[in-house]
C-alpha cells in the first residue's frame, strides 16, 4: 500500500522534481524505455505524483536502473520529463540517505 504524503510534493520540488503532475499516466515512457522493466519509469513517476514517499524510499534502488538515455523525456506527450524526474528522485533519495539538512525524514 502507498500512503499519500501531502507535504512530499513540495519537498520534491527542491530536487527538481517539478513536472510529475504533468504526467497523465499514458505509459508511453514505459513502452519506449529500453529497460522493459515493470512499467519503468511510469510507475515511479506515479509514486512521485501521488507523493507516496514510503514507496519511493522503500524501492529507491530501482531508480538507479535508469540509463539517463532520455528516450522517455523525448517522447512523453505531456512534457513531464520522466527521465529528469528520475534524476531528481535520485537526488532526493541520496539527500535522504545522507540526512542532508533540508530533507525531513
Amino acid at each position: 500500500m502507498a500512503t499519500v504524503d501531502l507535504e512530499f510534493a513540495e519537498q520534491l520540488e527542491h530536487f527538481g522534481v517539478d513536472t510529475a503532475s504533468e504526467c497523465f499516466n499514458c505509459g508511453t515512457c514505459a513502452a519506449i524505455c529500453p529497460l522493459i522493466y515493470e512499467h519503468f519509469p511510469r510507475k515511479i513517476i506515479r509514486y512521485a505524483q501521488l507523493g507516496a514517499k514510503d514507496v519511493i524510499l522503500r524501492e529507491a534502488d530501482e531508480l538507479w536502473r535508469c540509463l539517463h538515455c532520455g528516450l522517455c523525456t523525448y517522447t512523453c506527450p505531456r512534457e513531464a520529463n520522466p527521465g529528469e524526474l528520475i534524476l531528481g528522485l535520485r537526488r532526493y533519495v541520496i539527500a535522504n540517505w545522507r540526512g542532508t539538512a533540508h530533507v525531513q525524514t
Binding site: 500500500m1 502507498a2 500512503t3 512499467h39 510507475k43 506515479r46 501521488l50
Partner: peptide, 11 residues
C-alpha cells in the same frame, strides 16, 4: 488502476 491496481491511501 493508475497505480497498477495498488492500494493507495489519501488523507
Amino acid at each position: 488502476t493508475l497505480t497498477f491496481g495498488e492500494e493507495v491511501e489519501v488523507p
